[in-house]
Design a protein around this nucleic acid. Structure first.
Lengths: 163, 163
DNA sequence: GTAATTTCTAAACCTAACTTTAGATCAAGC
DNA sequence: GCTTGATCTAAAGTTAGGTTTAGAAATTAC
């Protein structure tokens, strides 16, 4: 059971629905590690099909490619991952996932009591609570509510009585 | 109760935690519509504080700026929005939100039965179901599982028996 | 053995959501 | 009146996640 012939990038593209260019990009990001054949073309393990599928699914959940690379690092590099390997990775993935969903639901529930009542943007508004948004925030260097450095008790987003 | 003096962009920036440049960018995207004073500087309604806060919150939920502009369009342009205006907008927002959370949870539950069992990427895998991901997908022209045009029953992402 | 596909690399281009920079003008404090 | 800080515009730069393009080399099909 040597390295065998491996599969081409076109095969993976056809099977996953990814563009060939996307797979090459994923290689550059360290998500797959093909070897080269005599002619210099990429050859992949068949098991990279599952790896790439995992990448696609994780993206649906909003994880960044570096995040996903982190998940995949626990998979064996040399041998084909077993069912147990995937089960292990899924535990870590589930953890992040659960936290993300929990955060979203907490925000949603807070929203119910907030937008309707008109308190939106007041420091005492539940949505202002830094704990919630600090949990798992999206990419990009964005200030979120109450997320400023040095924000004192007087400093929050605030609306007086103007609607 | 005329237009009054209005507040400066710096005031809004300080109160919301947004960068001044971000607020200007939001104006360019049609999220706020300040007027100009005699010297050509932007003046905002105080109620734009709440508007901007809403933008920040909606972004936490993963909505794009065009999405958010859509939500805000139901707010009155001329007068200061009332509590009822915000309540109305929240209904539409909640709808989208609920669908997004539902999709995430469905995907999560499917994942439980999938990664662990090793079926990941098989056409019969629940995660492969086009209905789920079509619901509300992220931005960008990405193929998701089974999302190819012309994908026949034979055409899905697939793994044979290689782990 | 020739033609048609694939694949290769490198670099440029794309969208979203902003930030940074530069040089000029405005507003406020003393 | 002068200085300092805030604001202005336009354009370029930034990050993520890719796609497109161009020209060359490898592979496959007949």
């Amino acid at each position: 059971m040597a390295k065998s012939a491996g599969v081409s990038i076109g095969y993976l593209a056809e099977r996953t629905g990814l563009a060939v260019s996307a797979i090459r990009y994923y290689e550059a990001q360290g998500l797959v590690e093909p070897w080269r054949n005599a002619g210099g073309q990429r050859r992949f393990h068949r098991s990279d099909l599952r790896r790439l599928s995992f990448v696609m699914i994780a993206q649906q959940f909003g994880f960044s490619l570096p995040d996903i690379r982190g998940f995949l690092k626990s998979l064996p590099g040399g041998r084909t991952p077993t069912q147990e390997d995937w089960a292990a990775i899924s535990t870590e993935f589930r953890d992040h996932l659960d936290r993300r969903i929990e955060t979203l639901m907490k925000l949603r529930d807070n929203l119910d009591g907030c937008i309707g009542c008109g308190c939106l943007s007041l420091p005492r508004c539940a949505l202002y609570n830094p704990q919630d948004k600090a949990a798992e925030k999206g990419s990009g260097p964005r200030y979120l509510m109450g997320d400023r450095p040095e924000a004192g008790p007087e400093a929050g987003p605030e609306v007086e009585n103007e609607g």
